[in-house]
C-alpha cells in the first residue's frame, strides 16, 4: 500500500518536471532526476570496466567464462595484498592486479580452457567449477572476512556541476566515479588500439574468425589464445582493483559482477568491442532511471527481463556486423 503510494508520488513529480522545467523552487525533483542520470554514468563506469574483460574472453574468444567474477575478485585481493604488505597506493597496485590475474588466467588457459576449445558446454561447466575452486582457495588463504582496501586520499570529494544559492550541491558526481569511468575508457581505448592497430591484434582477430586458416598462414594460434585469455583476465583484475575501494572485498564478491558483466556483453553484442560501451550505457542508465522512479530490486528485475526479451529477438546483441554464412 505504502509502496504503491511512493510510486505514484514519484511519477507525479516526473510528470510535473516534464512541463515545469527549471523552476528553482519546485524543480528540485527535476535536478534530482538529472543527478540520478549522472549517477547512472557512475554505474556505467563500473559496468564497462567489469564487462570489458568478458568482452575479450567471450566476445573475441567465444569462451563462456563463468569464472569472470572470480578474476575480478582476485584483482581486488591483489590490491588488498599489496596494500597490506607494502602500504602501496591503490593506483600503484593496478599493474600488479593486472599481472597477477593475467598470470592466473594464463595458467587456467594452459590447464583447463585449452583442452576445451569448441565445446562451449564443457567450458561452461569447467569455468563454473573453477569459480568455486578460486573462491574456496581465496577463503582458505584470506578467511571469509570482509577486507579493507584504502582508497587514494587525493581522489575524494565531488565535482559540483550546479549548486543551490546557499552553496549546497544540487548536481554533483564524485571524483572517484569519474576516475572509474576514465580508467574504463582508457582500458577500452588501449584494447581497441591493440586489437585493431597492431599486428598482434590482427592475429587475434584472424584466430577468432578462422582458426584453421590462421594456423595455415603461420599464426601461432595456441600462443595467441594464451595471450588473449590472459589479457581478458588481466582486465578483470584491473576492474577488481579499481572498484575494491568503493565496494566490499570478500570471496563471493565476484558473483555480483558476473551477471552484470554478462548482461552488458550480451546486450552490446559480441562482435564489436564498442558494443560493450553501448551495452553498459544502456543497462546502467536504464537501471538508474527505473531505480529512481521505482526502487532498486524492481529495476534489476525489469532490466534483466528486458535483456532476456532482447536476446530472444536479437540473439547477436545490438551491435553486430552482418556476416556471410
Amino acid at each position: 500500500m505504502l509502496d504503491f503510494g511512493l510510486i505514484q508520488a514519484h511519477t507525479l513529480y516526473l510528470a510535473q518536471d516534464a512541463t515545469a522545467t527549471a523552476e528553482a523552487s519546485g524543480g528540485i525533483d527535476f535536478y534530482s532526476f538529472v543527478n540520478q542520470l549522472l549517477n547512472g554514468i557512475g554505474i556505467v563506469g563500473v559496468l564497462l570496466l567489469t564487462g570489458l574483460g568478458l568482452a575479450i574472453t567471450f566476445g573475441v574468444m567465444r569462451i563462456i567464462n563463468l569464472a569472470h567474477g572470480e578474476f575480478i575478485m582476485l584483482g581486488a585481493y591483489v590490491t588488498f595484498l599489496m596494500q597490506s604488505a607494502f602500504q602501496m597506493d591503490l593506483l600503484l597496485t593496478i599493474p600488479f592486479a593486472f599481472l597477477g590475474t593475467a598470470l592466473v588466467g594464463a595458467v587456467t588457459e594452459l590447464t583447463v580452457i585449452r583442452r576445451l576449445y569448441g565445446r562451449p558446454l564443457e567450458t561452461l561447466l569447467a569455468t563454473w567449477g573453477l569459480s568455486i575452486v578460486i573462491q574456496g582457495v581465496v577463503k582458505l588463504i584470506f578467511s571469509a572476512q570482509l577486507k579493507y582496501v584504502k582508497s587514494p586520499p587525493y581522489i575524494s570529494g565531488n565535482l559540483l556541476l550546479m549548486t543551490r544559492q546557499d552553496g549546497t550541491p544540487l548536481i554533483s558526481i564524485s571524483y572517484y566515479r569519474l576516475f572509474i569511468i576514465a580508467i574504463a575508457l582508457l582500458m577500452l581505448g588501449i584494447t581497441l588500439y591493440l586489437l585493431y592497430k597492431t599486428p598482434l591484434g590482427r592475429q587475434v582477430r584472424a584466430v577468432a574468425q578462422n582458426r584453421d586458416m590462421a594456423k595455415c598462414l603461420g599464426v601461432n594460434t595456441s600462443l595467441i589464445d594464451l595471450l588473449t585469455f590472459a589479457y581478458g583476465c588481466g582486465l578483470a583484475g584491473i576492474a577488481g582493483a579499481v572498484i575494491s575501494s568503493l565496494k566490499s572485498v570478500s570471496p563471493p564478491m565476484g558473483q555480483d559482477y558476473l551477471v552484470d558483466a554478462w548482461m552488458v556483453v550480451v546486450t552490446g553484442g559480441v562482435d564489436k568491442l564498442i558494443g560493450v560501451l553501448a551495452g553498459s550505457f544502456l543497462i546502467g542508465e536504464s537501471n538508474a532511471a527505473i531505480a529512481y522512479v521505482l526502487n532498486d530490486p524492481v529495476a534489476r528485475v525489469i532490466v534483466l527481463a528486458a535483456v532476456i526479451v532482447l536476446i530472444r529477438y536479437r540473439p547477436e546483441g545490438l551491435f553486430t556486423v552482418q556476416k556471410r554464412a
Partner: peptide, 13 residues
C-alpha cells in the same frame, strides 16, 4: 523507505 537486494554493492540510487 528503500530496500536493496541482498548482497548489492551499488548504492548510488
Amino acid at each position: 523507505d528503500e530496500y536493496a537486494a541482498l548482497g548489492t554493492t551499488e548504492f548510488i540510487t
